[in-house]
């Protein structure tokens, strides 16, 4: 078993350098693409995520090792295993990500990544502090049960995260068609971060956009409609702690106030769901949009 570093540690200097390059691009082309307070907030999210990782990472890795005891096979440390692990880890990420947008418990953690109204490389580092609380790592456990060593999975997860950094930008329009067909790109991921009704709940891919094409969640970027970024109800504050915990606070309030038979639903139903139907979900917003556009009901 080889000793493996955390690849993200080595990528951080490149992250900072690329953010600086993009800031120069923004100054020349569109200064409103960056907002200093938003950038400070996003980068603070990233730092907090690293600090939390120092404490929670050990427990999560121990859980992965524990599950590895029950593996169906022992997959060797060979080149094909690395490729298979990377691809399957990306598939696991797709399902985690899709669930994180459709189940409020996981959304409470993942919303942190989406709560900026800007879409730039600093947004990529806007990572949650509460992924451990949401138990987001459980989506990777099947890989250990199949027989991939937890170290290999963790390393592939790090590479996956590094890949996801660079496409958080408006500075790149499109890549050649063959690349856009297979890989996740700035164009595909802009759609994912959009709040325009046509784009809600789409393009969950990490590295390979093929998962969205396979599972019916792919939406292509439309050139004649400017994208608006963030969340359906924008945060409206740069307060870091409130930004980190606001959805958890919302869940706690809703569960406290809801009738008993609806309490669980406020945790496991889609974001925006309410027992009296008084709030908007992405489905109701999309339905309203389709009606206004004269499109058939889905």
């Amino acid at each position: 078993m080889p000793e493996l570093p955390n690849p993200v540690d080595y990528a951080v200097p490149a992250f900072i350098l690329l953010i600086l390059v993009e800031m120069v691009w923004a100054r020349r082309n569109a200064p409103e693409k960056y907002e200093p307070k938003d950038t400070l907030s996003s980068l603070s999210f990233g730092l907090g995520n690293s600090v939390v990782g120092l404490f929670a990472g050990g427990a999560i890795f121990a859980s992965m090792l524990w599950v590895y005891q029950f593996r169906l096979a022992t997959i060797p440390w060979t080149w094909w295993a690395w490729i298979a692990c990377f691809v399957l880890d990306d598939l696991a990420y797709y399902w985690f990500h899709r669930t994180a947008h459709r189940v409020r418990w996981f959304w409470a953690s993942h919303v942190n990544h989406h709560s900026s109204q800007h879409y730039n490389l600093s947004t990529a580092l806007r990572q949650t502090w509460t992924g451990w609380l949401a138990l987001s790592f459980i989506f990777r456990l099947p890989l250990m049960l199949v027989g991939f060593h937890p170290l290999m999975v963790a390393f592939c997860g790090g590479l996956n995260l590094i890949y996801q950094f660079w496409f958080h930008t408006e500075a790149i329009k499109r890549f050649p068609r063959w690349f856009e067909a297979v890989m996740n790109t700035p164009s595909h991921h802009r759609v994912h971060h959009a709040t325009n009704p046509r784009y809600l709940d789409s393009n969950y891919a990490g590295v390979f956009i093929i998962w969205d094409r396979m599972f019916g969640s792919f939406v292509a970027e439309v050139d004649d409609e400017p994208i608006r970024y963030g969340i359906v109800k924008q945060l409206g504050t740069f307060n870091l702690l409130y930004s980190v915990f606001h959805e958890w606070i919302g869940i706690a309030k809703d569960v406290w106030n809801a009738p008993w038979k609806h309490k669980l639903s406020y945790m496991i139903r889609e974001p925006g769901w309410s027992h009296d139907g008084s709030r908007d979900t992405s489905d109701t917003i999309k339905a309203r949009w389709r009606e206004r556009e004269g499109l058939p009901v889905e």
Binding site: R27, Y34, E35
Partner: peptide, 10 residues
């Protein structure tokens, strides 16, 4: 980085 973003008038 945040300070620089402010200085650059972003």
């Amino acid at each position: 980085v945040a300070w620089l973003a402010g200085r650059m008038g972003l």
